Simulated scan of single mutants.
Amino acid sequence: MPHPGWDTFAFDGIGTAWEISTPDPIAPAVRARLLQAVADYDLSYSRFRPDSRIAELARAAVTVTLPEHAEQLEAVFRTLYRLSGGSMTPLVGGSLEQLGYGPDYALVPRGPARPAPRWENVLRWDGTTVGCTEPVVLDVGAAGKGQLVDLLAEILRADGVTQYLVDGSGDMLHAGPAPVRVGLEHPYDPAQAIGVVELGNRALCASASNRRAWGDGLHHVLDAATGRPVDTVVATWTTAACTLEADALATALFLVEPGLLEEEFEFDWLRVFSDGRAHCSQGFEGVLFT
């Protein structure tokens, strides 16, 4: 969503739509750097293109080198893998493809749900170095878009831009003296909102089982320990200082009780359940419509 009254730079990248709003138009050279950062991220982490760096891991037991920011991804995923008892893992890609959500977008299950392999059994991730003992489908989608939001904001700040709204299709980071009003999309009706948040100098991320759904009860938020879609929580929102963490925690809330996550992360949250209940943290700065 564009910031009211600001100039907006809109483009597509990593399979989704982006809008970067700033008080003044972004210089052409900075726009070029932003687009290059998006292209580089896609080339590193996309499981939907055969020439990406992580695609090599799906073909053979090999070791690949990722950009420096892979260290942050590893730290967040490793922590959430531990807290979830293996239900959240970057190795969920194979389970998603088993249910039909693969590079060919067939959206037809290949067979019954398949649990993801255990991290400790097949994956060696040490900072920028990632290796596997057997072919694995790595999927960083639970945190990658949020990290890319942070990376684009870094480019803006390096050019002296101090006020901005970077919006990667709902995963956003705001900086500036005046907050922006953001609607909370209804989990069953994208044309409706269940509430609003006043977002100021924070990241806001959301995850919902209706965003990428197909077939009978199939969607992209899986419990990696079983390989099956989660059916209790239907939508989550998180706010945090870091978009990478906000994005990852929005997915983790489908699988882990908030209190456990709050022991190791500073964030606020809202969860909506399939029976219509909604719970939020005490500090969540949103208003739900009645």
Rank of each mutant, 00 (worst) to 15 (best):
A142R: 10
M1L: 12
F265M: 13
S44K: 00
D139P: 11
A32N: 02
A178G: 00
W125G: 05
A158P: 03
M88V: 09
H69G: 01
V196M: 13
S281D: 03
D139T: 09
D159L: 01
S207E: 03
V233N: 12
V272M: 14
E257W: 04
T128E: 15
F265C: 13
E245N: 02
A10S: 15
A106P: 05
D223V: 08
G5Y: 07
G100L: 08
A178I: 13
D247K: 10
A70T: 02
D275K: 01
S87W: 01
T89A: 02
L57K: 04
V196N: 07
R47S: 04
G183V: 07
V140L: 15
Q163F: 01
L73D: 05
A191P: 00
A203D: 08
R31S: 04
A142G: 15
D275Y: 00
L138Q: 12
D51Y: 04
V272W: 02
Y81W: 11
V130G: 13
L244M: 14
G127C: 13
P229R: 09
F11W: 07
F11H: 05
V230D: 12
P23M: 04
P67N: 04
L57P: 05
R202I: 00
A39D: 03
A116W: 00
P112G: 11
D24F: 06
L57F: 06
F48Y: 14
A278W: 09
S209G: 13
G5D: 05
W214M: 08
C242Y: 03
N121R: 15
P187C: 10
E19K: 11
E134W: 03
E134L: 08
H186A: 14
P23G: 05
P187F: 10
S281P: 03
E56F: 03
P117A: 05
A27R: 13
D171R: 14
D104R: 09
H220C: 08
T290G: 10
F289M: 12
A10C: 14
E185Y: 12
L270D: 08
D247V: 12
M1F: 08
P25Q: 02
R53W: 05
H279K: 12
S21R: 09
Q163E: 15
G93L: 01
F273L: 11
I26L: 13
V182W: 05
A213Y: 01
A58K: 06
T16G: 01
R277T: 06
L96P: 07
T251H: 13
H69N: 14
V166P: 06
D268G: 02
V256P: 11
Q192H: 03
V64A: 11
I20D: 03
T239N: 02
Q192R: 14
T22M: 05
G131V: 13
W125Y: 08
E245T: 15
G141L: 11
I155P: 02
F77K: 04
L156F: 05
R59Y: 00
G94R: 00
T79F: 00
S87V: 01
S209D: 14
W237P: 00
N201A: 14
T243P: 06
P179I: 05
V221H: 14
P28N: 08
D12C: 06
P90I: 08
